[in-house]
């Protein structure tokens, strides 16, 4: 397994852990009564994510120093670009599809739409790293 694949697994796991924690412990959607709580939950989630990423990356660098020193090569850059394209489409479809659904079919408020956009962003990140792993696995 290449170093970049290990970091992709690390990021994917970090996103899943933080997302599950956030959705389990935060109220659904922003509104006038809970926006402080939601912002706090978002900041805590972001902090947890950064901590997992930094600690995990340091551990990986210490365990595989030679792999970590190898610069990203052309194939890895190509895989990153392909993954980014999948993530972009996921984000666009998720955001616009979600906003359309929430506005026209559910008549939801701005808070719920904000949650939908956040969910689209997180899903796009998950897709990006999952696609990276698939391409790394396929060519290994």
């Amino acid at each position: 397994m290449s170093f970049r694949e290990k970091t992709a697994w690390l990021t994917l796991c970090a996103i899943v852990i933080v997302t599950v924690m956030f959705w389990l412990h935060s109220p659904t959607g922003f509104n006038a009564h809970n926006h402080h709580w939601v912002m706090l939950a978002l900041l805590l989630s972001l902090g947890t994510y950064v901590c997992i990423e930094v600690v995990g990356y340091v551990v990986l660098r210490l365990r595989y120093p030679r792999d970590a020193r190898t610069p990203r090569d052309e194939r890895e850059r190509l895989i990153d670009l392909k993954a980014l394209r999948f993530a972009y489409y996921t984000f666009v479809i998720g955001t616009f599809g979600g906003i359309f659904f929430m506005l026209h079919l559910v008549h939801a408020g701005a808070g719920t739409i904000g949650t939908v956009v956040l969910a689209a962003f997180v899903t796009a990140q998950l897709v990006k790293h999952a696609v990276r792993i698939v391409y790394y696995r396929r060519d290994a």
Partner: peptide
Amino acid sequence: VGVTRQTINAIEAGKYSPSLEV
């Protein structure tokens, strides 16, 4: 060459065509 071992493996297996430079 200045690439990863996985890239050499992919090139050797015919799964990836390298750039002219490589």
